[in-house]
Amino acid sequence: MSINTKKVIKNAYRISKVRGQTALRIRVPGGHIETRFFALIDEIASRFGNGTAHITTRQGLELPGIDFERIPEINKMIRPLLESLGLDREITDDGYPSAGTRNICACIGNRVCTFANDDTTAMARELERAVYPNDLHFKIAVSGCPNDCIKAALNDFGILCTVEPVYDASRCIACSACVETCAKAVTGALSLRDFSVLRNRELCIGCGECIRKCPTGATRRSPEKSYRLVIMGRTGRKNPRMAETFLKWADRESIVKIIQNGYAFAQRHIDRSLEKEHVGYIVDRTGFATFKDEVLQDVRLGEKVIVAKHIQWGGYRYTSDAGFR
């Protein structure tokens, strides 16, 4: 059997444990899929696979137990799935054009969740159009609010949808519901002084809890949406770590542009001697300052945006498992 594994992997098929068998990796941007595709997925899994589908850690679907020679046939069949991605490129019968950039994850977002500050599904799809296809191994996730249920903090680019509360004292009854919820469940950014609410903007993370709790509409949503961009979080065998905040109160356009610039940055600096290099390790080599300069190129940040001056990532290194010595 002759298989060009690199080509197969790029085509979104896995080299599996079982010799001769592969698994199809279906992209589901934002983890939200139209159920009309279930019949198609069922047909592929039943006819070519082992009749099962795995829901992947990145919200895709993986159909295992497929013989390699079935790939061309399956690629033809999955054309509607590719078309549903809404990419600005012609869709062919050749299957997925790339698999490096992983499925863009998102929590259920404000189509359903009361906490979410934006439509994360729509944002995941917008990002998919902005960055896919691309062979670079990037992980991007969108969380509807700073609760970060999707764990954007473990991605190269994590977007937390935020909202800036707008307070109107003339509607406030000083019930303290916002102050209490912020103190107990968030950062304690709010305080009541002389029966009016004061907000510490540095402490405020834009979660919107104060808005949800207000019984009079004294605290409302600002008309513009805003986002916190956290960067270079990762799992892995070397130095797993949480992402750190790069931007606060950023606008959507800037976020998309910065992520696109992040791809260009990685292309410029990647160590091509390695099989692959994650962007986080590239940033570790170049330093945050270089990364910052390059990704902010040609980005027109709004007035409200706050950019991190320095970032010191933490995480742990398996080489220093001090507790075991």
């Binding site: 009361t114 500050n117 934006d118 439509d119 949808c161 909202v163 949503r221």
Partner: peptide
């Protein structure tokens, strides 16, 4: 418009 407690 857009003035509900939940976004959008």
């Amino acid at each position: 418009s857009d003035k509900g407690a939940f976004s959008d």
